[in-house]
């Protein structure tokens, strides 16, 4: 069976074809917010170098209402990106074994989530200590 005129379908609107594609795009889009937050921190570091006046301007910006909304958005983006990235982590690792048994992907995911939670709490405690 040969056809001289095969029909090529368009990829237009491909993300509408399955919810998994939309979740994937959301995961990738969080990288943009995270990138912008990194730039914001870089601005803060540069302001520290430039002196008290520049640092006060940066602080006023991040403490303003739009600045706070942006930070909340960045926090949500970080959390979602970390959650989805850690869910995919087992796919990027060689199969882990405990003795002769392979450790399931679910266990690797849970262990990574636990490590993430512990690290976040440790950082929060350290930051709170530094503020005092």
């Amino acid at each position: 069976m040969t056809s001289t005129r095969p029909y090529i379908r368009s990829m237009k609107g491909w993300w509408r074809r399955h919810p998994a594609y939309r979740w994937y795009l959301l995961r990738e889009a969080t990288s943009v917010v995270i990138g912008l937050y990194a730039l914001c921190l870089l601005w803060g570091m540069t302001a520290l170098l430039l002196g008290p006046g520049a640092h006060d301007v940066w602080r006023a910006c991040v403490q303003s209402l739009p600045g706070r909304v942006f930070q909340l958005l960045a926090l949500a983006a970080f959390a979602w990106h970390a959650w989805t990235w850690l869910r995919l982590l087992p796919l990027t690792l060689a199969p882990l074994r405990l003795g002769r048994h392979r450790i399931s992907q679910t266990r690797v995911h849970r262990a990574a989530l636990g490590a993430w939670a512990l690290t976040s709490v440790a950082l929060l405690v350290a930051a709170a200590g530094g503020l005092r």
């Binding site: 399955h18 998994a20 594609y21 994937y24 990738e28 995919l88 087992p90 796919l91 990027t92």
Partner: peptide
């Protein structure tokens, strides 16, 4: 590959291509 991950979900033989 940008790790969409659907390939592994739909595989009827349990292969994990994304992995």
């Amino acid at each position: 590959c940008t790790l969409v991950g659907r390939c592994s979900e739909v595989c009827p033989k349990g292969v994990d291509p994304a992995g």
